[in-house]
């Protein structure tokens, strides 16, 4: 019985694979033909339209989540500033400490650098997706403004530090402004679409 089942199964495989000969079982031949008509063109057109509409929806959703140019540029610039400071702390920590007139703590500088690079990733997220921008603003702007305020204390001590920290502070404030403008424009666009 098992052999018979195997044989019958192999015969079906051959037939469905287009290898069945004219000696094949007539019931199998009939079933293989009657059960496998071509799908009607109307059905294909209907599903094509569904797939195309879904693809258009996905494109629209991606477009809607792309941040405005101003927000993207400010977030990217702040991310760059954080990375610059973080990498600078690692490669030139001793020089920075010397210019600030304080003892160099490699351990603290290294861990601070890692934290700054993590903050840079968070800031960069706002340059990629609008939906991530709120989190970027909440985490990066306070940090950037704090660094900016700290920069005032370095005036007359370390010019490069002043320039970097004041830039970070300004970018932190600009990030809030860019986020607010982007949000306002998005909400206005939605209202107009609804209207």
């Amino acid at each position: 019985m098992s052999d018979e089942l195997e044989r019958s199964d192999a015969e079906i495989d051959d037939l469905l694979g287009g290898r069945g000969g004219p000696t094949a079982d007539p019931t199998l031949l009939w079933l293989a033909s009657a059960a496998r008509p071509a799908p009607p063109p109307a059905l294909l057109a209907r599903i094509d339209a569904q797939v195309a509409a879904a693809a258009a929806d996905r494109r629209e959703a991606r477009r809607a989540d792309r941040p405005g140019l101003f927000l993207a540029v400010v977030a990217g610039a702040l991310a760059f500033a954080f990375v610059f400071q973080g990498v600078g702390n690692i490669v030139a920590g001793e020089w920075i400490a010397e210019n600030l007139g304080e003892p160099h703590g490699p351990h603290a500088y290294f861990e601070g650098a890692l934290a700054l690079i993590a903050a840079a990733v968070c800031a960069a997220a706002a340059a990629v997706r609008r939906s991530w921008s709120t989190v970027s603003v909440l985490t990066c702007s306070p940090l950037a403004v704090s660094l900016g305020l700290g920069g005032f204390g370095e005036i007359g001590v370390f010019a490069a530090g002043v320039a970097l920290h004041l830039s970070e502070g300004a970018l932190g404030l600009l990030l809030v402004l860019a986020w607010w403008l982007d949000r306002r424009d998005t909400l206005r666009g939605r209202h107009e679409e609804r209207a």
Partner: peptide, 19 residues
């Protein structure tokens, strides 16, 4: 898999009878 083959085999037998 053998039970699945058996189902098809039985179905074909019944279809032969019907035809």
């Amino acid at each position: 898999p053998s039970a699945a083959r058996m189902l098809v085999h039985r179905a074909l037998g019944r279809l032969r009878e019907v035809m």
